[in-house]
């Protein structure tokens, strides 16, 4: 509702920002990417080595292996007690940018009355949750910086259930390696257990004091100020705890899995 009361200028800025991101997304579509990558790495490599002895797939495999090694380094650098900086409400970025792999009007519409959050995997209690039940749990909020893998950042305010509390409530195996997420927009991602238990990791139900709007991930998003934007899933429908590497939408295409900051 706050969105409708925004001045027209702010609103059209929003639309422009959405368009801009949509354009850049489409430019980076897998087809174009494949074309660009093959033309580029061939050119780049032959430029550097003066020959093309090194196969392209070998380079790609080596780079992915180093990226997996960097996951380990990041897990080691991650301090579970170190807090991300917090900001004053006056520092919140307005309007907070919409960002997804689709345009804003294509964000999924989730019906609150029929919505149930599914829990599965290594948990003691896998009953489904209504939004009202989640709202009945103790809530907290944070004003933190969201950093996108593209480089830009924006400050926002999210409120909801500390994710560690939620995991304990469902009796999750806290020694498991991964927590995975499946979303209403077909997005999926997964995180490491230490980050899942970080005190600032929030199962966010509100944005800026209002019910989380559709464009920011209704009915809920996982907010982690210790990870890049694409690691923060929106429109979450199902959460699972596992020891099998679940990957992610962008991660499976080559983005770094840990994505920590």
């Amino acid at each position: 509702m706050s969105r409708l009361s925004k001045p027209l200028i702010g609103h059209s800025d929003d639309v422009l920002a959405g368009l801009r991101q949509e354009v850049s997304r489409r430019l980076d579509s897998p087809l174009r990417r494949r074309f660009l990558r093959s033309s580029l790495s061939l050119g780049g490599l032959s430029l550097l080595s003066g020959c093309t002895i090194v196969g392209e797939n070998d380079v790609e495999t080596a780079l992915r292996r180093i990226s997996r090694f960097n996951d380990k380094v990041q897990g080691w650098l991650f301090d579970p007690t170190r807090l991300a900086p917090t900001y004053a409400e006056s520092e919140i970025t307005r309007p907070f940018p919409f960002n997804a792999f689709y345009a804003e009007d294509q964000a999924p519409e989730v019906e609150e009355s029929s919505f149930r959050l599914e829990i599965s995997g290594l948990v003691a209690d896998n009953r489904r949750w209504t939004l009202a039940e989640l709202r009945a749990m103790p809530q907290t909020d944070q004003v933190t910086r969201h950093i996108c893998v593209e480089g830009w950042s924006a400050i926002g305010k999210w409120g909801g259930v500390p994710f560690a509390d939620f995991l304990r409530r469902v009796g999750a195996d806290l020694s498991a390696r991964y927590v995975g997420f499946k979303c209403a927009d077909d997005y999926y991602t997964s995180i490491d257990m230490p980050t899942a238990l970080h005190p600032q990791t929030l199962l966010a139900l509100t944005y800026d004091g209002q019910t989380l709007p559709r464009r920011y991930g209704f009915p809920m998003k996982l907010r982690m100020p210790t990870k890049l934007g694409y690691k923060n899933p929106k429109h979450i429908q199902a959460i699972f705890v596992t020891n099998t590497y679940p990957g992610g939408y962008w991660e499976d295409q080559g983005y770094n899995w840990f994505g920590g900051i």
Partner: peptide
Amino acid sequence: GWLAGALQ
């Protein structure tokens, strides 16, 4: 070739 490749 694209952002993910450049980051790698």
